[in-house]
Design a protein around this nucleic acid. Structure first.
Lengths: 211, 211, 211, 211
DNA sequence: CATGAATGAGTGTTCATTCAT
DNA sequence: GATGAATGAACACTCATTCAT
C-alpha cells in the first residue's frame, strides 16, 4: 500500500468521481439535459477523461445504471429479498412488512438512481428491455411463486397472481414515491403510516367473500 | 378581420398543427430529446412559424400542456368529476367505480399528454408548482372533503384522508399505467380486472378493526 | 428583379462563398488538414451555415468536386474535347497540339480543383469510383477510338491503344504539373517547350520499325 | 550495455514496430487521417512509447520518410544508380532499360513509402525542400551530366537536359504508377510493355530532324 | 401570415501530447 | 524502458432562435 492505491475494484479515482458526478447530474437535470462538460466539471476531471472510460455519453448512462441495476437491483436485491421468499414468513402481513421496509431502504439509499431509471426508461427501448429481462422477469417469477404459496395456504384472495402483485406494488410505490420524492420534508409518523399501508394491502387482499 | 375567421378557438390552422406535432414529438422523444426542427417538419411549417406563436421552445411545452391542463384537467376534470363529488353516490364503492372509469377514459383519450406530463414534471419546477396550485390543490381539497364524508358515514376507515386518497390513487394509477402504457396489447378481461381493483381498494379501506 | 438577387443558379450568396472558401482551403491544406471553422472564417459565414447546405464535411468535398467534375470535367471537358475527337484534325501532331493546349488551359483555370482531386483521390474510394465511372471511362473510350483511327490511317505505331494513350498522358501530365505546380515562377520559353514536348510524343509514336 | 544489444541499427524492437506500423497506417489513410492511437495499436505499444522516440507525430513522419529517403532513396539509390551513370552503358537505350528496371524494382519494394511521399509532399514545405536538397538535386545533377554525355555522343536530341530528363521521368512514372498502383492486378505482358515504353522514349528523343 | 436564410452558443467526441510511476 | 492515466485544444456537427422579406 505504498502509493498506487488502485484499491478496491480496479476503478480509477477519476472513474469513481465521474460516475458519482454523472449520477448527480443525471438525477438533477435528466440525461439529455446534462452536458458532458458539466459532468467533467463536477467530477473535477477533463472532459476527455470521461470518454477514456465511457466511449459515449450513452455508455456513461448505462455504465451508471448498469452496475447499479446489476449490483443493487439484481444480485443485491436477490440477496435482500431472498429471505423474504423463504418459507420463514409465517404470515402474509409479515411478508408485506418486510418487503416494504426493504424497498423503502433501497430507494432511500439510492434515490438518484431510482430517479434516473424512472426518467430514462420511457425513452430508452434498449434500457427497457435490459431491465425487463435482467431485473423485472426474475423478480416477477419469484413474486408470483410466493403469492401462489400464500394463496394455497388460504392467506390471500385467489385472484390472478400478477394482479395481486400489482396491487401490492402500486400501493407500496405510491407510499415510497411520496415519502422519498414528493414530500420528504413533511412531518411523518412513519410507523403509523406504514402500519396503515400494510393494513390496507393486507385487508384488500384478505380472502373474504369472492370477487 | 377581413377574411380569416379565426373561428373556433382563436387558433390558426398552423397553430393547431404545431401543437399536435409537438404533443406527438414530446411524447415520443421527450422535451429535451425533441428538436424544434423536428416539430416543424411534423407540423409541415417552417421553424420560424413555431416561434411566431411560441416565443420559446419552453413556451411551446407550456402551450401544449397548459391548455391541456386547463381545458382537460381543470374545467373538464371539474365537469367530469363534479358529479362524483356530489352527494349522489350512495356508496363508497360506487364512487370508486365511477372515478376509475372516468380517469381511465381520460388517460385513454390523451395518453400523450399524460406521458409528457409525467416525464417533464420531475425536472420542471415551474411546471410542478403550476400544476400543484392549479390542479392538484383543488382536486385534493374536493377529494379530501369527499373522503371525510364517507368517513363520517362510517363507510370507510377513519385514517387521515390524504393517506386514504393516496391508497386509492396509487392503486388506480398502477392499474391505468399498466393497462394503457405498459401492456396495452395484452388480452385483458377488463370487467373482471376492474371489479377486483375496486374490490381491493374497497376492502382495504373498509372500516373493520382499527389500525 | 427588385432586391432579392438569388440570381444565377438558385445558389445563395453564402453557398457560393462557402464553396469558394472550401476549394481554396482544401487545395492549400488538404481535406483532413482543413477545419470547417477555417472554411467558415474564409467564407465569412457562421460554421452552422455550412452545415445548412452541406450536411457533412465530406458532403462539402463532394459538393465542391462533384459539380466541378460534372460541369468542368464532364460536359465542359466534352465540349472542349469533342472538337478534338472530330475528324477535323488532319494529323496526329495537330491533335496533340490541340490536346495539350486545352488541358493546360483547363488546369491553369482550375488549379485548385486539380490539386484537391489529385490529393484526395488516393484515399477516397467512393470518389475514385465516381470519377472512374463518370469521367475516366467516357474519356478513355473516346480517346481509344481516336487512337485507333490514327493507327488505321498509319499515322502512329500500332501498339495497344491504352499504352499509346498512357504515353501521351504521362508526358503531358509531366509537363503540365511541372509548369503549373512545381516551377510556375521559372522563366519559360513556353512555345519552344511545347514544341519539343509535342515532338517527343509525336516521334515516340511515329510508325517506324515495329517494336 | 548489460543485456540489450541495441545491435544492428540502434533501433529498439519497439522503434522498428512503430515505424512499420506508421508506414502502413500513413500509406493506407494518409498522415492526417491516421491517429497516433491507431499506430500504437498496430505496433502493439503504448501511445506514450511512440512519443519516447518521436517527439511529435510530425517527427514520426520524418522519421519514417527521412531514413527511408536517406537509406533507400539516397545512398541506396546512388548505389543502384551509380552503375547507370558509369560509362559502362554503350547506348542510350541500354541506359533507359536499366533505369526503368531499377526504378520499377524500387517502387515495388517500397510502394508504401512512395505513396506517403507523394501524398504529403504537396502539403509539407519542409519535407519538400528536404527532399529537394537531399535527393532531387544530386540525382538531377548526375542525370543531367549523363544526358549531356549522350548528347555529346550524338545519341539523343540536343534539347535542354532538364526537359529531356522530364520526358524520361514522366513516361517512366506513368508506367510505374499504372503498373504498381492503378492496375496491379491486370494481366500484363510486362516484357512487351517495357519494350514499347523504352522504344517510345528512345525514339522520342532520337536525334532526327531538329525541333 | 409565413418563411428561407442565417447564426452564436453549445454538443458530444477525438486528438496529439505529457508525466508520474 | 515503457506505460496507464490524464488532458487542453480542437473537431465536426446541432440547437433554439432571429430577422429581412
Amino acid at each position: 500500500m505504498s502509493r498506487r492505491p488502485r484499491s478496491s475494484d480496479t476503478l480509477t479515482e477519476a472513474q469513481k468521481k465521474i460516475v458519482e458526478a454523472a449520477v448527480a447530474a443525471f438525477a438533477e437535470q435528466g440525461f439529455h439535459g446534462t452536458a458532458t462538460r458539466d459532468i467533467a466539471r463536477r467530477a473535477g476531471v477533463a472532459e476527455a477523461t470521461i470518454f477514456k472510460y465511457f466511449p459515449s455519453k450513452r455508455d456513461l448512462l448505462l455504465g451508471v445504471l448498469g452496475p447499479a441495476i446489476e449490483h443493487l437491483v439484481g444480485p443485491a436485491m436477490a440477496r435482500s429479498m431472498d429471505p423474504l421468499f423463504d418459507a420463514s414468513y409465517p404470515t402474509f402481513e409479515a411478508f408485506l412488512r418486510a418487503l416494504l421496509a426493504e424497498r423503502t431502504a433501497f430507494v432511500r439509499a439510492h434515490p438518484q438512481l431510482a430517479r434516473i431509471l424512472a426518467q430514462e426508461l420511457p425513452f430508452d427501448a434498449e434500457l427497457r428491455i435490459g431491465i425487463a429481462s435482467r431485473v423485472y422477469a426474475p423478480i416477477l417469477a419469484k413474486g408470483i411463486a410466493l403469492i401462489e404459496r400464500f394463496q394455497r395456504e388460504g392467506q390471500i384472495v385467489p385472484w390472478p397472481p400478477p394482479l395481486v402483485l400489482r396491487c401490492i406494488v402500486s400501493t407500496f410505490a405510491g407510499y415510497i414515491l411520496h415519502r422519498v420524492f414528493i414530500a420528504p420534508d413533511a412531518a411523518w409518523d412513519d410507523e403509523a403510516e406504514i402500519e396503515r399501508v400494510i393494513a390496507f394491502v393486507s385487508r384488500g387482499l384478505s380472502p373474504g367473500q369472492p370477487a
